[in-house]
Design a protein around this nucleic acid. Structure first.
Lengths: 141, 141
DNA sequence: CTACCCCCTAAAGCACACTTTAGGTCAAGA
DNA sequence: TCTTGACCTAAAGTGTGCTTTAGGGGGTAG
């Protein structure tokens, strides 16, 4: 229904204007119309495409693969199974990434405890050795 | 204790030999020794550095920032508070990334249901319109 | 009228993280 | 002895994803 200028779309998506033009040039925004003067007029569908791009980029996809997905969309019902397979595959990939990120988070939290102790001790050597600093021995209750 | 060749380290870390040399050249492996012939001899600490690099890269850090962190390590106890702050900051960014990835996962799962229905219908148009396909209307109990 | 702002294209430029190439050393096995 | 294979350096090359530059159009507010 509505139509937006590239500047409005940039504000809405938090992308730069040149980035949106680049995505268009790369074929990532199917059906994007231009008026007589050559000015891009974005529809709600075009906006949805950009939001999908953001999602796919977060999942680590390349421009090339996003273009392929957008091309399947344009092809209509005959690519439905392909697109389902695409999302099934993507689901697995995203789960892998979450697992990797969780391992990273575990390491970071370990390091927070490690350096928390080291800062309290004023030195790394006790915590490195798995010991308590002399002045910081905790008394048993 | 142990020392490893670059080839062994490549196998252990799943990195390519040139990548490990590149990391060394970039100053990401502090204290990496070479023998008289100029051949790199990796210690367990050097291996640990490479594992830390993997962790930091998963968190999205650049070579430059990883180098900075490794440099703080070399500086000893006087950078403890800096390193604690570094991991506190990193913790926040990793949580942000997990949240973004979770939103992506939600979208992907929505699309899996969407295309699952569309494939069942043989067309996208009913699910697009929020309708059931004519032959697939579910009977009430 | 002219200045400003938003829009356009084409093309060059850039940052990053490797990878590849070219040429060389050295030790061990056939 | 010769070949093979693992190591080395320096430097050039590559792919990706933008960003920047240069030059221009057009509508509106002062």
């Amino acid at each position: 229904m509505s139509a937006y200028s590239i500047g409005e779309i940039a504000t809405m998506t938090q992308l730069s204007v040149p980035t949106i033009r680049y995505y268009d040039k790369e074929g990532l925004i199917p059906g994007l119309a231009k008026n007589e003067a050559g000015v891009r007029c974005f529809s709600d569908d075009n906006l949805a495409a950009l939001q999908m791009i953001e999602c796919l980029k977060t999942a680590g996809m390349s421009i090339k693969d996003i273009r392929q997905f957008m091309a399947w969309n344009v092809e209509g019902d005959k690519t439905l199974a392909t697109r389902l397979a695409f999302f099934n595959q993507l689901h697995a990939t995203v789960l892998d990434q979450m697992a990797a990120l969780q391992r990273t988070l575990d390491t970071v939290e370990f390091k927070q405890r490690y350096y928390g102790q080291a800062v309290a001790d004023g030195t790394e050597k006790y915590v490195k050795a798995g010991k308590k600093a002399p002045g910081n021995v905790r008394q048993e209750a």
